[in-house]
Design a binder for these strands. Sequence first.
DNA 1: TCTCGTCTAATTGTCCGACAAGTCTACATG
DNA 2: CATGTAGACTTGTCGGACAATTAGACGAGA
Lengths: 216, 216
Amino acid sequence: MVRQVAVTSVVDAVGDDIRRRLFAGELPPGSALTEAVVSEDYAVSRSTAKAAIEKLSGEGLLERGAHKTARVPVLAAADVRDIYRTRLRLESEALRELAADNRVPAGAVEANARVRATGAEPSIESVEPDMRFHAALIEALDSPRLQRMYGSLVDEVRLCMAQVQGRSLLAVDQIADEHQQILDHLAAGDAEAAVSSLHDHLMGASRRLVAALQSP
Amino acid sequence: MVRQVAVTSVVDAVGDDIRRRLFAGELPPGSALTEAVVSEDYAVSRSTAKAAIEKLSGEGLLERGAHKTARVPVLAAADVRDIYRTRLRLESEALRELAADNRVPAGAVEANARVRATGAEPSIESVEPDMRFHAALIEALDSPRLQRMYGSLVDEVRLCMAQVQGRSLLAVDQIADEHQQILDHLAAGDAEAAVSSLHDHLMGASRRLVAALQSP
DNA sequence: TCTCGTCTAATTGTCCGACAAGTCTACATG
DNA sequence: CATGTAGACTTGTCGGACAATTAGACGAGA
């Protein structure tokens, strides 16, 4: 077992902050990010700015064509649907594997408790534990590659959230209830029921996101 | 509908050629790729070489730590198993969705015919159509994100193949038969049977790869 | 002998400045 | 109105430079 500590290069630091700004909605969809601007904003060389931008492009958080300025992607309904259907695919598999052993990941239970603790009203506060709940399902499989894939999806989900500015929130209680239902099915070892609940949970969220995207 | 044509930067060209060399086994596992060497080999600046190396690292085809020289990853048994289990997860989901509509992707049928056409003896020739068969299952779902994820897995699979140098090949007929079995189950709309066949197919391949890795 | 510093060579991280090539916009021309 | 063109902006690539880091060799001292 090797202890891991994080070292951060300037490129990473700049990339991380741009990512943060993306998720915080500080960079509206469609807005441009030229290498020169990034370079000035962070007081780094253009090479460094370029590297940061290209890294984010590789992750799908920015769009850029050859000789074109990088832009914050504008997510269309088709994108949101693809993101959520792919999410559903990964998480469904996770549920099937967990249900096969009646496994209920402790991290998911804990995260859902935190969801519920954020109060009854729809709240942006509940997003964080909500994401943790779902991530815990994936992490329970202990597969580096699956986790990496899911991580890239999560980033796109956060981009969605930023673009609808919380206009698609559901009552916290309902979210927590739906999560609990999934956990119950897991405990019972009923894979199909768990998958079905997850399907409703995620497809509902997808529909709300699409609706929020299309109404100003 | 926009017609797409490919433009290739120098960075991409260098990256693509290194990728090719990786898959061709020209770069043995564990070997180092310094920026200076790449820069000289391709007669490009170090900045360009660096960008190419970093792109490949991002795709998981090279390993590199801060201030460390990039190296061709040496795949351990755990890696191969994780790669194949993740492959199984994605392809299983694809089969379930296809079976739900009794869909048999034409591309998969055609690819399997090409597998069989490569003769009866185990042959490196059959690898290409084999990969096409599996990719066709994923492509049938028409999901950009799922395809991207699967693509990154395929790259790692090719890295495996390069590292065992074809020491894990199975008789072409058997491969084609197993593929056909999956297609038959799909046509019958029997998702669980299709998934089960796929499971045996992929886990067998995984076991052979691990064995080949561990014997000289 | 083993451990610990130190020195050195190789390598990467970051910056700067430069120029060619590509993109976009507005404007002029036919 | 379509076409072409000029100019500003932006990206792609290069070369060189220097600091920071790593890794290996070497030697001093316990």
